[in-house]
């Protein structure tokens, strides 16, 4: 059973061009449940990694700005 809310949240939060998002919307119904779960894992891991990088970037940028 796929958590559709989570799938949609992952898709809409993912950093991807509009064309790719549109393509996934069409492709997902053709994928097996196992493949959809794998896609969700990929998107989740991407978002976790990108969020970590962004946090690190923001923290360092704040330090630089406040060091004035």
């Amino acid at each position: 059973m796929i958590d559709l809310e989570k799938l949609v949240a992952l898709l809409t939060k993912a950093e991807m061009p509009a064309g790719e998002l549109e393509a996934w919307k069409k492709i997902i119904p053709l994928l097996s449940l196992e493949q959809i779960e794998e896609l969700m894992d990929i998107l989740l891991s991407e978002q976790v990694q990108l969020a970590g990088l962004r946090e690190e970037y923001l923290a360092k940028a704040r330090q630089i700005v406040e060091s004035n």
Partner: peptide, 8 residues
């Protein structure tokens, strides 16, 4: 493999 149902 199983797929999304039409309702899903």
């Amino acid at each position: 493999p199983s797929f999304l149902t039409p309702a899903e």
